[in-house]
Amino acid sequence: MPESIDHLAAGVDSEYRPHLLFEATTPDKSIHTVHAWKDGNHWKSVKVDFGGPRFWLGLAFGNAGIELSSIRKGLHVVFTDENDDLYYQRFDDSQWLPKELVWASAGSGKTVPSASIALGAYDVPTIAFTVEDRSDAGDLIFLELRLGTLSNKVWSSATLVNKAEAFGSNQMNRTGFAPQLRFDEKGRMHLVFMDKAYLTDKSGDKYEASGSIRYAYKRPDGWYYKTLLEQQAPQEINSFPRLSMLHPQVALSPDGADVVAGGMVFREAASGGRSAFSLMVVEAENQFAW
């Protein structure tokens, strides 16, 4: 029996079976990652020794047992390792398959602070992820949204968005934070994400926050973008009130014509004061119903 458990992620697959990913510390103080799921009236679990620490960013479930989708059934995860490289891995309902490299930091100092994984046609995964770069002092230099795609068993990625709107003061490389990716039943991608603002002053004080819900959807002729809920970041560190947002989410109808996005909005009234927060939801329009 483990001495302690650190819960990492949970979800339900297409057959309504609950799954857990967690770290278990054994009496000899060794740490193991465990995947557990309920099969009928009993729980099953496997110990997953990955050979190094992992930082879980997202998970998705394949359509196990459904014709044509069983080629990639089971649990799909995206994570970074101790070298800041981004990986994808799949559990095929019996064992973990070898991990697949999606994007390599290659010692550049760039990291992936947020990512989302979704399954398209035949349960082929796509990953939306944020690439971030900071100075040695921790100053934010670079933040962009990339899309990782799988073709012929090879992953590749490309920049999707690299310019902020109002919240990021229209600056380059300050966008793509906390992406949430979804597919509709026709295989079209829908994506929400946020911009980031970063300010410093002569005294060395810093202000960093995410805000504004932005929406992207893909049509045959390319990607289209809209700002669904616009926020204005302060122009100076000591400007109040400060508005920001965290935890964006998106839900859509099966045909992709009806889209709802939301997030947790924070309002800081004074320096050092307590932030008030509220949940805001907004509808998105696209051309799929036309």
Rank of each mutant, 00 (worst) to 15 (best):
E100Y: 06
Y198E: 01
F79L: 00
T200R: 12
W37D: 05
G58C: 02
E132R: 15
K29W: 03
G109E: 12
W56F: 10
K202N: 05
D184E: 12
K153G: 03
P27H: 06
A289W: 00
N162Q: 13
L243V: 00
V124M: 04
S271V: 11
E285W: 02
I66Q: 09
R134T: 15
V281N: 01
E268Y: 07
E100I: 06
L228R: 02
N152I: 02
V112M: 04
Y16F: 12
L21K: 06
D13R: 00
W103N: 10
R242M: 00
P98R: 11
V102L: 06
V78S: 03
G74K: 03
E15C: 01
A284P: 06
K29D: 10
K163L: 03
Q231A: 02
S108W: 11
Q180E: 13
N152F: 02
I127A: 05
T25R: 15
L86V: 06
I66S: 03
S135R: 08
D139Q: 12
I5L: 14
A216I: 13
A197E: 01
D28G: 05
P18F: 09
T111K: 11
T33D: 05
V250E: 03
A289F: 00
A284G: 14
Q89R: 14
R242E: 10
E285I: 03
I5P: 04
D28H: 03
L252D: 07
W290Q: 08
P248I: 02
E3F: 07
M280V: 14
Q235I: 07
Q249I: 10
T227Y: 02
K186G: 12
P18R: 11
L101A: 08
T159F: 00
D184C: 07
I127N: 04
K202E: 06
N173W: 12
H7C: 01
G51F: 01
H42M: 07
S114T: 15
D184Y: 06
A115D: 08
G11N: 09
P98K: 11
A166Q: 14
F288T: 08
V265R: 14
E268H: 11
W290D: 12
Q95A: 15
P179I: 09
G107V: 08
F193Q: 00
D184F: 09
S156M: 01
S70E: 14
R17V: 10
V78Q: 02
G40D: 04
G204T: 06
G273N: 04
I5N: 11
G107Q: 10
D184H: 09
T227I: 05
T175P: 05
P220L: 08
R242H: 10
D136F: 05
D136V: 12
A251E: 09
A261S: 15
K206E: 14
D221E: 15
L97I: 07
T126R: 05
G51R: 07
I213A: 02
W103H: 13
T25M: 07
S30P: 01
G256E: 11
A121E: 06
M245I: 02
L140H: 02
G176H: 10
I5R: 13
G262L: 08
I141G: 03
S4A: 15
D92N: 15
A289S: 13
